[in-house]
C-alpha cells in the first residue's frame, strides 16, 4: 500500500483529507443544528429532550459519534500539519505585503479561525457533551432526569437553560459561532474545489449555497444561547 502512503502524504492528498473531513463535519452541523432547533418549539424542552434522547441512545448515532470524533481529530491534526508545512514553504517573509489586494482575509485565516473554533469547542464539549455522556463517571455530576411519556430521559434542556444564564458564556458562544461562520464561508466552496469540482454551471451555485448555508446555520446556532439568555425561550 505504498501508493496509498504516497497519496496521503502528497500535498493534494492531505488537502483531500481536509476536504472530505470538512464536508463530513458540515453534515454533522446540519444534524446538530436541526436537533437543537427543537428548543424553538418553546414547549418546555419536551421536543428537544426527546430528540436528544434518541440521539443519545440510538446505536447507529452513537457509532457515528465515534466516527465524528475521529473525523474532527483528523481535520484538526491534518490542518496543523499542513499549516506548519506551508509556513516552511516561505522561510523568509516579505517586509511589505498587501494580501488584501488579491484574496479574502477569511480565506487566509482558516488556521486562526479553526483554532478559535477549537477553543470554543473545548468549552462547548465541557458544557454539554461531557455531562450528558459521561455524567456519573470520572467525578462528573450526572444530569437530572425528566419524565416524557413513559420514559425517563436526561434533562439536557435544563442543562442548556442553566448554562446560558451567564453573559460571559453567551459572548463566548456568539464569538465561537461567528468564527465558524467565516470558516464555513471559505471552507464550503474550498472543499469542492479540492475535490476537483470547478464547473461553469455549478461553481457559482456552490459558492452561493455555501454562503447562505454558513450564515443561516450560524444565525440559528447563535440564536439558541441568545434567546435563552433573553428569556424568549423558557
Amino acid at each position: 500500500m505504498s501508493w496509498m502512503n504516497t497519496f496521503l502524504t502528497s500535498s493534494i492528498g492531505r488537502k483531500l483529507v481536509m476536504s472530505v473531513t470538512g464536508l463530513f463535519l458540515i453534515t454533522f452541523l446540519i444534524v446538530h443544528c436541526t436537533i437543537n432547533s427543537m428548543i424553538f418549539f418553546n414547549d418546555g424542552g419536551e421536543a428537544f429532550n426527546k430528540a436528544a434522547h434518541f440521539m443519545g441512545t440510538n446505536i447507529l448515532i452513537r457509532t457515528m459519534e465515534i466516527v465524528l470524533f475521529a473525523g474532527l481529530i483528523l481535520h484538526i491534526v491534518q490542518a496543523y500539519m499542513l499549516a506548519a508545512k506551508n509556513r516552511q514553504a516561505r522561510p523568509q517573509g516579505y517586509a511589505v505585503s498587501n494580501p488584501g489586494a488579491n484574496s479574502k482575509w477569511y480565506s487566509r485565516s482558516m488556521t486562526l479561525l479553526g483554532t478559535l473554533i477549537l477553543m470554543f469547542l473545548v468549552l462547548h464539549i465541557s458544557h454539554f457533551w461531557s455531562n450528558s455522556r459521561l455524567g456519573g463517571m470520572m467525578g462528573i455530576a450526572p444530569l437530572e432526569e425528566v419524565q416524557i411519556g413513559d420514559k425517563e430521559v436526561l434533562n439536557l434542556y435544563q442543562d442548556m437553560m442553566v448554562t446560558f444564564q451567564s453573559p460571559f458564556v453567551i459572548v463566548i458562544y456568539v464569538l465561537g459561532v461567528i468564527s465558524l461562520c467565516w470558516h464555513l464561508i471559505h471552507g464550503f466552496q474550498s472543499a469542492f474545489q479540492t475535490l476537483g469540482v470547478n464547473h461553469k454551471k455549478y461553481t457559482p451555485v456552490i459558492k452561493n449555497i455555501g454562503i447562505g448555508f454558513s450564515i443561516l446555520i450560524c444565525l440559528l446556532f447563535a440564536l439558541m444561547p441568545v434567546s435563552i439568555y433573553a428569556g424568549w425561550i423558557c
Binding site: 500535498s11 488537502k15 499542513l82 514553504a89 516561505r90 488579491n102 484574496s103 480565506s107 471559505h186 474550498s190
Partner: peptide, 14 residues
C-alpha cells in the same frame, strides 16, 4: 518544497 493550496485564489488575482 512548495506549499499546498488553500484555495485563497491570490495566484489567479496576481
Amino acid at each position: 518544497g512548495f506549499g499546498s493550496c488553500t484555495n485563497t485564489y491570490a495566484c489567479e488575482a496576481e
